[in-house]
Design a protein around this nucleic acid. Structure first.
Lengths: 341, 341
DNA sequence: TTTTAAAATGCAAGCGTTTACATATTCGAT
DNA sequence: ATCGAATATGTAAACGCTTGCATTTTAAAA
């Protein structure tokens, strides 16, 4: 019997150690269910043979992959990076591996990626935002794959999420801005189709306006895809209009930073001529000049909490519960009072 | 026979369609090896049952995971994000999924992550930089997992890489800087232990100095971990010394941007009092104020080429070949001539 | 010692695919 | 119609592991 096998299997280890495959398996997975003597023998064999378990076989037999998928709009910009990094680190502590896929902000690609990750046996999924085709949720349901939404917390949603209330967060910032006397305000928003986060942020501003007794029609909105350049272009458009705003909200820091650059290029002083407000408080915000006034989001905590919840769910069946995280406006250099020209 | 199975299997589909499992399998994997009639029947059954193949079983039977692992120092900052995004997008085109793991710049964690990814059945690995414990390469070898190094291209290395020559890239930038008359130069470097990229960049500056007839001892070096704050701190140290440099190189843009912020905080004018030079040309570089002079690296192309090479290797056994990408200095606002105080 | 419960180990049945190989079907040429 | 080659389909054996259950060993109690 000339075994020309390349990589050793459980069998080989078992044979070498003079025990059964079951024992080797237990020894590897539940070391304390095995005598020390046996364990030593087995471990020695494992070492000698250079054995390492076959993932596929393991998955199939255990019906678990210990993999959790995360589907984000993009890795390219910093917005999700920090939260994701924390998510991964925490997951790792619990013995899980993270699988990331990105959608480039396309609902279709997202659906595809979700299927792909489920197909790869992800034990659970981390999703950004609530708003997606019901079919997707149904699919997840029938496949028995639990999912957790993050980057959003909506009191009205039943589905579990670990995140923050985008609307309330933006409202509290907007309230401060309006208090400074800004009447002509604009918003450079991310695309709101299938993006509840963007939509909620927009509503938050309107909420604040209503509260301040200002007609919401005064809010001029430009929707644009994600990116620094896009933010710059939108800002240009805004400032070329006859009625220039005195404060420009941006759906996120990346857009804001683009707007800021454009202001510089156009010779518009910030915050003297116009205030610019971001959202997220990513590193960019502090580096920008002037440093960006923005809404701070606890990205790392969010990632970490999501990981803990998901791990508990998969490992011990602990049902997913929603967790609301708090945000707060941080005032830096780009926000100022309205100044009479 | 009351099948209370949650998810349908190949068997169920086969039964429903009235064919064998083999046919279903072929139908799914090689649609053209099956009659149209049969295919329709099968596809219908697949649809009705909501079948989706079991990853583990597939892996085990096919001995391939179609997964390629990428191990990077960190996701948190933008340096690797762009390249990784491109890597993933390209991989996807070829039917592969990317698995990311991050090491927090720790060699130990890297080793662990490599083992973890191999354990999960990664068909190949993407690694950053050449410099790591030979044991790791040996491990990869015995496991038969091909690996490709990126973010570096070293003419002296035999292992395949898709990247750029860090040393030459930095040298060409340094040459320009020296030409501007800078004599007192400093470098805020990333930690060079097990980081050939950092080390090579450092050497590149020294090369330029030698060529310019300047003693390399004139280069004052501070090594610091990765981060904006770290860059700021290092810069502070440098500028508090009796002999202040007139030009400060930074191992990467993140450090540079930290230095830049610190300069602003200290009231040091850039580039009038001191020039600051980055490396990578990430988005941050354009947003910084003044915009950062830095070395442009074709991150997206790098990720893309790496993906293509790896996919070809795994799919068709095309041996990995090294590819050198070119970089170039980009001059923006933070570099100026030495100015007599 | 003997008895008994608990702990350790072994046995063997899956887990859901893929893929040689065997068998059946189709179709064009005779 | 008949035959053969080509094409389509079916059969069944892996693939390497986990785990419920049966069996053996160990250790504590009597």
């Amino acid at each position: 019997m000339n075994k020309t096998r390349i990589t050793p299997t459980l069998h080989d280890v078992a044979a070498k150690a003079g025990v059964s495959t079951a024992t080797v398996s237990r020894c590897l997975n539940f070391p304390d269910r095995v005598t020390e003597r046996t364990r030593n023998k087995v471990m020695a064999a494992v070492k000698v043979l250079g054995y390492s378990p076959n993932f596929g076989a393991k998955v199939m037999a255990a019906r678990r992959t210990n993999t959790i998928g995360a589907i984000i709009p993009t890795m390219e910009n910093a917005i999700f990076a920090r939260g994701l990094q924390a998510f991964q680190e925490e997951l790792r502590q619990h013995g899980f591996t993270m699988l990331v896929a990105s959608t480039s902000y396309s609902a279709d690609i997202e659906a595809e990626q979700i299927r792909a990750l489920v197909g790869r046996g992800a034990d659970a999924l981390l999703l950004i935002g609530h708003d997606r085709d019901p079919d997707i949720y149904e699919f997840l349901e029938t496949q028995g794959v639990p999912s957790l939404v993050t980057w959003a917390f909506d009191p009205n949603e039943t589905r579990p999420s670990v995140g923050f209330d985008n609307r309330a967060a933006m409202q509290s910032m907007a309230t401060e801005v309006l208090r400074l006397g800004h009447k002509k305000v604009a918003l450079i928003s991310a695309m709101t189709a299938r993006n509840d986060r963007a939509l909620e942020r927009c509503k938050g501003i309107q909420d604040a306006m209503v509260l301040a007794g200002q007609p919401t029609e005064d809010l001029k909105i430009i929707e644009t895809p994600y990116g620094i350049e896009e933010g710059a272009d939108a800002f240009k458009l805004l400032m070329q209009a006859p009625e220039k705003p005195t404060a420009v909200f941006c759906g996120n820091d990346v857009l804001a930073v683009g707007a800021l650059r454009q202001a510089r290029d156009m010779g518009i002083r910030v915050p003297d001529d116009v205030s610019i407000i971001g959202f997220d408080d990513i590193e960019l915000a502090q580096i920008a000049y002037p440093p960006l006034t923005t809404v701070h989001v606890p990205h790392r905590e969010m990632g970490q909490r999501a990981a803990i919840a998901l791990a508990a769910m998969v490992t011990d069946g602990v049902p997913l519960k929603s967790i609301e995280l708090s945000t707060h406006p941080v005032f830096r250099g780009t926000l100022g009072p309205v100044c009479a020209k």
